[in-house]
Design a binder for these strands. Structure first.
Length: 435
RNA sequence: GCGGGGGUCGCCUAGCCUGGUAGGGCGUGGGAUUGCUAAUCCCAUGUUCGCAAGAACUCGUGGGUUCGAAUCCCACUCCCCGCGCCA
């Protein structure tokens, strides 16, 4: 969350930010709740002070063996008053906390202002070698336009997936991977992990389920309903990405500033309801309830976070250059930016069968937004004052989505799939699937 | 899963049985004093609200009992030891 003090001190700034994010937000409700919250604190403190004073008096009298029954009677009344104020305070706190936690992060000055995704700016394009792009255009011809096979037809043709049976036992947006697809998926994971180790990351396999308090710090409230699965009768939630456990990993800790930045490479299965995406990408592996992902997560000092952000992007872009998957990098405009993020780059891979770029990576600087809810601070020396760290995250590779990109970009006119050069050593003898 | 032990204001620790302002040590910061490579003493040392004076909170977390809870009761949680189960 953002610093609650800002509600009292600079409402104009918040108002402006909300407008630039094209967000409808009940700011008045929040401002009132904040005012009420502080009034209640003062009132409650006043009554508690009375209580403490009388309590001391009782103690003093008892020691001297004097009668304290009138004061004890008085205390009873104060007790009810405290109870009443506490209840009022609790419901006010709930209202305040709900709204303050939904308030999005302030964004960086380099974020272009804009209304929605149409105002995002392209910062880079990479076209790969396009060796394989040319071949499939010799492929299937349909109404005079040369068409490529989509990943579902390709994978079905080669016996690499079974979507029907997955639907039978689990419903839509699930899949069985089979044969070389399993190997390819693991090859991609292994390659990604080796790549991050080479870049100096600490690789981590986190818990796939975490408690509510840990999840709440990493995630914005509305995401609970739309994306996060809950385990029935347990205080456990399925992670939507390893970003969640990686962020909360250091919750309530004071990190040693000398160890920063800390760079983690998380690998996990990710679980998402996709409740807000009805009808979108219903077929295939592109948008699914369960997928693997290798994620980068950085804790750093505030003064380093923008440098770290560029570094994350550069490392991620290089990964797709090595895989020779065409992509473009865009910077999200203020209206399209995620609530937690102060600045986000998306990398969009080229999906030739859809004849379009689609998001495959998202690279964000969340500044102190997550760190504040999770209380993650640092200091250089044991008795220094503590400062909130900045957190950043970036997809390195979302395995299933990238498998789709590989299938489509590396397909041949024979319906086979060339294995990307960088993955060959992880694929044993297979250098072309279906040959 | 069962049994036992534990979690105290940065770190260590007393207090819990027997309810009445959370005490000491270490570390750190500031100050004082003394002619010795240093010692000794004093003050401060978390969070929140408040312009401030000040006040409230803080003994793993949340409830309960009580005029009053670190202390008594209940639930949860984490750590340690033993047993059980298990890829």
């Amino acid at each position: 969350m953002i610093d609650p003090k800002i509600i009292k001190e600079n409402q104009g700034l918040v108002k402006e930010m909300l407008a630039n994010r094209s967000m409808d937000f009940p700011l008045d409700v929040l401002i009132n709740a904040d005012k009420q919250r502080r009034d209640l604190i003062v009132e409650l403190q006043r009554v508690k002070h009375q209580k403490n004073t009388l309590s001391k008096e009782i103690s003093a009298r008892k020691k001297k063996n004097e009668n304290a029954s009138t004061i004890i009677h008085e205390m009873g009344k104060i007790g009810t008053e405290i109870k009443r104020l506490e209840e009022e305070s609790k419901s006010n706190e709930e209202l305040f906390s709900k709204h303050i936690r939904s308030l999005p992060n302030f964004f960086h000055e380099t974020v272009p202002l804009g209304k929605d995704e149409n105002d995002n700016k392209i910062t880079r394009e990479y076209n790969g070698k396009q060796n394989f792009l040319k071949k499939p255009t010799e492929g299937i011809e349909k109404s005079g336009i040369l068409q490529m096979k989509n990943h579902i037809d390709l994978a079905n043709g080669l016996g690499l997936i079974d979507l029907e049976r997955a639907g039978k036992i689990s419903g839509s947006r699930f899949y069985f991977l089979k044969n070389e697809m399993v190997k390819l998926s693991m090859a991609l994971s292994n390659f990604a992990i080796d790549y991050l180790i080479k870049e100096g990351y600490t690789v981590v396999q986190p818990p796939f389920m975490i408690r509510r308090d840990a999840m709440e710090g990493a995630v914005i409230l509305s995401d609970f309903e739309e994306t996060i699965y809950k385990i029935e009768n347990e205080d456990l939630y399925m992670i939507g990405t390893s970003e969640h456990p990686l962020a909360s990993m250091h919750m309530n800790e004071i990190l040693n500033g000398k160890n920063l930045p800390v760079r983690y490479g998380g690998i996990s299965t990710c679980f998402r309801k996709e409740a807000g995406a009805h009808g979108k990408d219903m077929k295939g592996l592109f948008r699914v309830h369960q997928f693997e992902k290798v994620e980068q997560f950085v804790f750093c000092k505030p003064e380093d976070s923008w440098k770290e952000h560029e570094r994350l992007l550069q490392i991620t872009e290089k990964f797709y250059e090595i895989l020779e998957i065409p992509f473009r990098t865009i910077i999200l405009c203020s209206g399209d930016l995620g609530k937690v993020s102060a600045k986000t780059y998306d990398i969009e891979g080229w999906f030739p069968a859809q004849n379009t770029y689609r998001e495959i990576c998202s690279c964000s600087n969340c500044t102190d937004y997550q760190a504040r809810s999770l209380r993650i601070r640092y200091r250089d020396n044991p008795n220094d004052e503590t400062t909130l760290v900045h957190t950043l995250n970036s997809t390195l590779v979302a395995i299933q989505r990238t498998l789709v990109a590989i299938l489509e970009n590396y397909q041949t006119s024979n319906g086979t799939i060339i294995v990307p050069e960088a993955l060959k050593k992880y694929m044993g003898d297979t250098d072309e699937i279906g040959k």
